[in-house]
Computed example of a mutant assay.
Amino acid sequence: MSPSPTDGSASSASWISPGAGITGGYDGNSQTLRMFIVFFAGLAMYNACEVTIMVLLTFNTWRGLYFWSLLTASLGIIPYALGFLLKFMNITVGQERWLAVVLLTIGWYPMITGQALVLWSRLHLIVNGERGDMILRYTKWMIVVDVIIFHIPTTVLTFGSNGSVQTEIFATGYSVMEKIQMVGFFLQEVTLSSIYIVETIKLLRTSLQPRTRTVMKQLVFINAVIILMDLALLGLEGASLYILETLLKGVIYSIKLKLEFAILGKLVKFVGATRSDLDSEPRNTSVGFVVAETKAKVVEDEMNISEFVDLSRVGTDLTHPSQPSDSTSRRRRSRINSSELDWNLSRFEHVEDISELIEESSISSSRPPSCHFRAGNGEV
Rank of each mutant, 00 (worst) to 15 (best):
V287I: 06
N223S: 02
L136A: 03
P321D: 10
P153T: 07
R275W: 04
G107E: 00
T214P: 03
S17M: 03
S14D: 15
V220I: 11
L278K: 10
L33C: 01
L311I: 08
M111L: 12
S175Y: 06
E359H: 10
L257S: 10
S334W: 13
K295E: 12
Y196Q: 05
R137E: 09
I135K: 01
V102K: 03
I197V: 10
I243F: 00
M303G: 14
T294F: 00
V220C: 09
M134G: 06
S346P: 02
V147K: 00
G184R: 00
F289L: 07
G376D: 15
R275P: 00
L123R: 04
S364I: 09
D317M: 12
W98K: 11
E237V: 15
P210N: 12
S365F: 05
W108R: 06
I106L: 03
T246D: 05
V147H: 02
H151T: 13
G114W: 08
M182G: 13
L104P: 03
I53L: 14
L157C: 02
D317H: 11
L43C: 07
R131W: 04
E379R: 13
R374D: 05
V380A: 11
K140M: 05
P282V: 00
S194T: 14
S193M: 00
S161M: 04
A41Y: 03
Y109G: 06
Y242N: 12
I363Q: 08
P79M: 06
D342A: 12
L65E: 06
V38M: 11
V93I: 09
I135A: 07
Y242C: 02
A10Y: 10
F270D: 06
S334L: 10
A224I: 14
F39T: 06
V299L: 08
F170V: 06
V215P: 00
I263V: 14
L244H: 04
P5M: 05
R122I: 08
T172N: 14
P282T: 02
E307I: 14
N223E: 02
K179F: 10
R137S: 14
S370R: 11
T285P: 04
G107I: 00
L248I: 09
R330K: 12
G235S: 08
K179S: 12
Y242V: 14
S121F: 02
F170M: 14
M229P: 04
Q323D: 15
M229V: 10
L71K: 01
S12W: 08
L345E: 11
H372L: 15
P153L: 03
L248N: 07
I180V: 13
M54C: 11
V190E: 05
L204C: 07
I148M: 12
L257K: 04
L341W: 02
G163S: 02
S2K: 06
S312L: 07
I197K: 01
F39Y: 00
T246G: 06
R313T: 09
M35R: 08
K297N: 15
V51F: 01
R330I: 13
D230Y: 14
S14Q: 12
A375R: 14
L345M: 05
S280P: 03
S2G: 07
V290Y: 13
S12Q: 11
I143M: 11
R313C: 03
G265D: 05
K179V: 09
G19F: 01
W68R: 15
G378I: 08
K249D: 15
L86S: 03
S365P: 06
Y174I: 05
